[in-house]
């Protein structure tokens, strides 16, 4: 589970980029950061290690690498639903290039209206922006699109 968004697993978030295991209880997991300055990275590495040790692996290596670049298209459908359940608007799908105007009409996760405005691209964590829904008058957060 993501320590900052507990409704989504890190697999559905798309940050697990390689896994390998062997019969003699060794495991290797490669993670890729959502944002380079994400403070949850070290915590996630530790959590992955603990889980694997708990299910019986004896030698576990967890590494963070930029080899595979994370982007918001890697979030699974299940993951997008989990974000919404947490009250976060899922990021719009993109084709590799992001125009930041897409942020201005992010659908409201509460009432689905597109009659919204972005207040600021910098939210409570690096991966979120803050918006306001003019339809249901609620403030909400969205997961920022990243290419």
């Amino acid at each position: 589970m993501d320590p900052e968004i507990p409704t989504i697993s890190i697999v559905d978030l798309g940050i697990v980029t390689k896994i390998a295991s062997s019969e003699d209880k060794q495991a290797y997991v490669q993670l890729t950061p959502t944002f380079s300055g994400c403070p949850a990275l070290k915590i996630m590495e530790e959590m992955v290690k603990e889980k694997l040790v708990a299910v019986g692996y004896e030698e576990v290596e967890v590494e963070t690498s930029f080899e595979t670049q994370w982007n918001t298209n890697l979030i699974s459908e299940k993951g997008r639903a989990a974000l919404k359940q947490h009250g976060l608007a899922p990021p719009p799908k993109h084709d590799g290039y992001i125009e930041l105007d897409v942020l201005s009409d992010t659908p409201c996760p509460l009432c689905n209206s597109r009659n919204t405005t972005m207040q600021t691209p910098f939210g409570p964590t690096l991966c979120r922006s803050m918006h306001y829904c003019k339809n249901c008058s609620n403030a909400f957060e969205a997961f920022k699109p990243v290419s």
Binding site: P33, F35, S36, G37, C38, P39, Q119, T120, P121, F122, G123, P124, L126, M130
Partner: peptide, 18 residues
């Protein structure tokens, strides 16, 4: 919002320097 913006950019920059 500006307080948070500069703090977030600080976090990005220090993460990038690392």
């Amino acid at each position: 919002e500006e307080d948070i913006a500069f703090s977030s950019m600080a976090q990005d920059k220090i993460g990038q320097s690392l």
